[in-house]
Design a protein around this nucleic acid. Structure first.
Lengths: 209, 209
DNA sequence: TTGTACATACAAACCGGTCGGTATGTATCA
DNA sequence: TGATACATACCGACCGGTTTGTATGTACAA
């Protein structure tokens, strides 16, 4: 009844298999979005079959949120140089973060994209699980930036009063919006220009320089 | 074979029917995205059948781009008070625009959303028609803002050098990102905070207060 | 041998899109 | 004016293919 499964190489490394699925999902969904990406497509991209997929994830949504969470962990790692606590000038840390973000625009000609931004836009109005997962990641980013701004405020006299948390959300929104607009306008330079203005804006908050 | 179509009230107003389809599409896609919204669903929402739908639009994509274009026209109308050429101080015009944007956050408790931003994020990487339509609308917004900034520069001494077009893209990105983040974080106030900072930023470009 | 990892086959719903057909408006000509 | 012809608007069953998800089988590792 079943076709003989002849000599198929199986690796039998569940953790790696799971990660392969997540990697494939991220790759495809960054391009096509959640609804635009099918489970079959993901399986094909990950080099495995549907049965295997549903062994590792309860359903498509579970994979999606796992992918968002993985994206968050990866992001945190990429920002580590800027976010890690050190004794350095926090304003210097902020500059490093801007450097890292500029770096994203230079890695390739493909647009800079963010899993959190994409899932936020497409899914968070209708799917509570995605909404919550994305909100967590956005909060994390903001908290890190707010922490640096707060620390900078202690070291440097602020030129005018400002709320670090508000400014952090401002920067987060600008960053997400920059990726969105740049994707449609097909211009990495747009992001770099925005980051330049953002950098100057942050510098302008303080008296130094 | 076919059921007899007995005494069904038909309105026969093609322009209105077309618009009903566009309205339904905007309503649904703002919530669910393009791929997440089916043609059947749109027809049901618009109170009509599939045959009728495909009489008015070649395919789903055509309806999508029509909806984006309609959204752009509507947006231009909403911004008219700020964008219309008058002899007023252009800086005053910018303030009016910020007022209008703040107004969007107060119309209801539903998140402020933008058809262009949603389609950009979901579709512009894979669908050239959507990409082009969205790019057009983003350019239009930016041009209007850049025009005001350029005019303001002539009337008020800029505090420091700045490129009106760059700043306009900066503001556009911030605006799109604000809607995106606020939707996920379920906070209209976040948008208002961002707009406050943006307003101060623009004021800060000029010497006057 | 038993549990887990993975493969295969299948199901039921749903998808965009087509098609034969009906209802209604309008131009033409007697 | 009124009958006829034709174009446009609208209807809803239907089609092939795709969707997510399930049921069941096989292989490997302990």
């Amino acid at each position: 009844m079943y076709k003989k499964a002849t000599s198929i190489k199986r690796e039998r490394d569940p953790a790696a298999t799971r990660q392969r699925l997540i990697d494939a999902t991220v790759r495809l969904m960054l391009q096509q979005g959640f609804s635009g990406t099918s489970v079959d497509q993901i399986c094909k991209e990950a080099g495995m079959t549907k049965g295997s997929f549903f062994h590792h994830f309860e359903n498509k949504e579970a994979l999606g949120t796992a992918a968002v969470e993985w994206w968050g962990r990866m992001g945190t790692a990429l920002y580590a140089d800027a976010w890690k606590d050190t004794t350095l000038d926090p304003l210097e840390h902020l500059h490093r973060m801007f450097d890292i973000m500029v770096g994203f625009t230079r890695r390739s000609d493909d647009p800079v994209v963010c899993m959190v931004g994409m899932m936020s836009q497409e899914m968070s109005a209708t799917n509570p699980a995605f909404q919550a997962a994305c909100e967590r990641e956005l909060n994390l980013w903001t908290e890190n930036v707010a922490k640096m701004l707060t620390a900078a405020k202690k070291l440097h006299k602020p030129k005018t009063k400002f709320d670090p948390v508000s400014v952090a959300w401002f920067l987060n929104s600008l960053w997400q919006g920059s990726m969105l607009v740049a994707k449609t306008c097909r211009s990495q330079e747009l992001i770099r220009h925005n980051l330049k203005l953002a950098r100057d804006y942050v510098d302008g908050l303080f008296s130094t320089t």
